[in-house]
């Protein structure tokens, strides 16, 4: 798979800000970053308000997704360039989501907001509005989404990749270290899951590492490229980043993101949990 089909560089993006049929979309959990300055012409998507169902613990359904994209002015024929903060975590989540609903042309901006800012590229505060469209989504492609029963069944058989930090994997922390730690669910990881933190796939400036580097990182962690894979983290956005690396960059055919992730698994009754730095037994 060619990188050019799934990833664009900041240079390419800056040259194509006004290109017809190209829509830049900033995706964040907290959109104050967008409001304080965004890529010229980019619209915003709020990870929580726009992409999560307000009542059930699930993301928006096909009709809600169609209404959202129509209202924001994204057409089925547009090439959507996604970027955001947190090293593109939420942008990668949105990428996975656009793929799930069958959008044809969607790419990530390599390095996301961070590289764009560190490079001193233009950011503007202008309000952006696009004419409404009639967007039609496809039925969700569940070949890239894992649910809990399938995750439990995968213990000891498929590659399970826990992409959280080593301390979260081992059970020493319950959340990323920029958040308070007290929460209800149990700490630890799914037995037999290998720990390959999402951050290993990225350079310091947020860009993805080369395919050669990526393949070596997963091979070293004991990842078997011949087996189907399920990636998870805490709430499914860091594992979207790894899903992107495995499925879109390395081109492994059967890779699913478990968006329920540790906040679901670590609250289930009766499932096995492993503590410590080793994967543990099935």
């Amino acid at each position: 798979m060619s990188r050019d089909n799934v990833l664009v560089s900041a240079d390419w993006a800056e040259k194509n800000l006004d290109a017809p049929g190209v829509v830049f979309v900033e995706v964040d959990e907290d959109t104050t970053a967008y409001d304080a300055g965004h890529i010229p012409g980019a619209i915003k998507l709020d990870w929580k308000k726009d992409l999560q169902d307000p009542v059930r613990r699930d993301f928006v359904n096909k009709q809600q997704f169609e209404a959202l994209l129509s209202e924001r002015g994204i057409a089925n024929s547009d090439t959507v360039i996604l970027y955001g903060g947190n090293n593109n975590w939420f942008a990668a989540y949105a990428y996975w989501y656009f793929k799930l609903y069958g959008h044809e042309s969607v790419k990530l901006l390599d390095g996301g907001r961070k590289k764009w800012e560190l490079d001193n590229r233009p950011l503007v505060k202008d309000a952006v509005s696009r004419p409404a469209t009639q967007y039609t989504a496809k039925q969700p492609d569940v070949s890239i989404r894992a649910f809990r029963d399938e995750v439990v069944a995968a213990i000891g058989t498929k590659n399970l990749v826990d992409v959280r930090s080593p301390d979260e994997y081992a059970g020493r922390l319950l959340a990323p270290a920029h958040l308070p730690q007290e929460q209800a669910q149990r700490a630890g990881h799914i037995p037999t899951a290998v720990n390959v933190p999402w951050s290993k796939a990225a350079n310091e400036d947020g860009t993805f590492k080369s395919n050669e580097e990526l393949a070596a990182i997963y091979a070293e962690a004991g990842f078997d490229a011949s087996k189907p894979t399920i990636a998870y983290c805490r709430i499914g956005e860091r594992s979207s980043h790894t899903w992107f690396a495995l499925h879109e960059l390395l081109g492994y055919p059967d890779v699913k993101n478990y968006d329920g992730s540790w906040t679901e698994y670590g609250s289930l009754v009766g499932v096995p949990v492993a503590l410590g730095d080793e994967p543990g037994e099935a």
Binding site: W47, G85, W89, L179, P180, E237
Partner: peptide
Amino acid sequence: MAGVDVAGCGAPDQ
């Protein structure tokens, strides 16, 4: 103010 939101992973207001 975003405050600290333990439900998500975004960086809270520093």
